Amino acid sequence: MTGPRPLRVLLADDHHLVRVGFRIILEVEEDIEVVGEAADGERAVGMAAALRPDVVLMDVEMPGMDGLEATRRITATAGTADADGSPSGPAVLILTTFDREDYLFTALQAGASGFLLKNGTPEELVHAVRIVARGDALLAPELTRKVIAAFARPGAAVTADPAAAGALDRLTPREYEVLVLMAGGATNAEIAQRLHLGETTVKTHVSRVLAKLGLRDRVQAVVYAYERGVVQPGAAAGSAR
């Protein structure tokens, strides 16, 4: 009997040596397979459509089409999460040498599922690939803090349109609690502990929240929660509506 198929990864980086390094790190793992390499954003978009990888490792600064535009095009065709909470198309993991907020927020708006600096460890890279591939715990705590800080700045506005309000009304009280906790960067395990639920139950709630709000993953859920005023910067996680 065969085991589960390996996670399929596409590498997009204009530096050949970087791609070689990523391939070596990832292919040591029995559950990960590198299915292709692209040296620019346009080729990454085409290969993502042709190869249908689970994860695209995307550099930001590349010749021609950059990684942010390539991310936008790849995720635009992916749709929302599947019933089990996993992405319905390739999840994009941004890797860059630049710790810049403009890259971070543009990547999130483009639909990226994660954002890592290239000075991380091989173990962190492998872990991130597995995380984004299953659509779970996509937002690192430090990334959450930057998102919260952005909405806490003077003049930061929240969106309050009728369609958004209607979508929120479709959430059950429990699903709303889960959204609030996700917005604070809580993992499924932390949500389960906080709400005294099993992790499987929490995963079901997360999937339903994403489906009802038309969101791709937890990253979008966090941004959505702050844009819609579900939670306010500085408020305690778990606040009632």
Rank of each mutant, 00 (worst) to 15 (best):
T121N: 06
S239K: 11
R216L: 02
A78Y: 01
A189N: 06
V219W: 13
E101W: 04
V209S: 03
L108R: 11
R218T: 08
A192S: 08
A152D: 14
T121V: 03
R73K: 13
D13M: 00
D14R: 09
M58V: 00
A112H: 02
D102L: 06
G198A: 07
V209M: 07
K203H: 11
F105E: 09
R218C: 06
V178G: 12
R170C: 07
F151V: 05
A76L: 01
S113T: 05
A211L: 11
S113I: 03
I74D: 04
A183F: 08
L116P: 07
I94D: 02
T71F: 13
V231N: 01
I131C: 04
A156N: 14
L210F: 05
F22A: 02
E33K: 15
Q220C: 03
D31T: 07
D82Y: 06
V56S: 08
A83Y: 02
K118L: 07
R216W: 06
V129R: 04
R23A: 01
T172D: 00
T75N: 07
G120W: 05
A76H: 04
L17K: 07
F22S: 00
L213A: 01
L17W: 07
A128T: 08
R194W: 10
A91K: 05
M1Q: 13
V126K: 05
M65H: 15
T77N: 11
G184N: 12
I32A: 14
K212Y: 02
A160K: 15
S86Q: 13
H205K: 14
R174T: 11
L108E: 10
L51V: 06
V223D: 10
G229C: 10
D54C: 01
D161R: 09
L108C: 06
T2D: 09
A81E: 02
E227M: 11
V147Q: 15
R23G: 02
L11C: 00
D54V: 10
D169P: 03
A91E: 00
P6K: 02
S207P: 09
I131N: 05
M65Q: 15
L171M: 11
L210C: 04
Q232N: 09
V158N: 12
V28I: 11
F105P: 02
T80G: 11
I25N: 11
L51N: 06
A157Q: 15
H127G: 10
I131R: 14
G67I: 01
V222L: 12
Y226F: 14
G155I: 06
G36K: 10
P63K: 15
M47I: 00
E101P: 03
V223H: 03
G46R: 13
L57D: 00
R241S: 13
L93D: 01
L117Y: 07
A225C: 09
L93E: 01
G89A: 09
L215V: 10
R43K: 15
V158C: 12
G89D: 08
L139N: 15
I24F: 12
A149D: 10
T172N: 00
E29S: 02
D169M: 12
L68F: 13
I25Y: 03
V202W: 02
R170K: 15
E42Q: 15
A157D: 14
T121W: 08
L17R: 11
L168M: 08
T71Y: 03
D13Q: 00
D84C: 14
G198Y: 07
R218M: 04
A189G: 04
V20L: 09
L95N: 03
T80K: 13
A165L: 11
T71E: 10
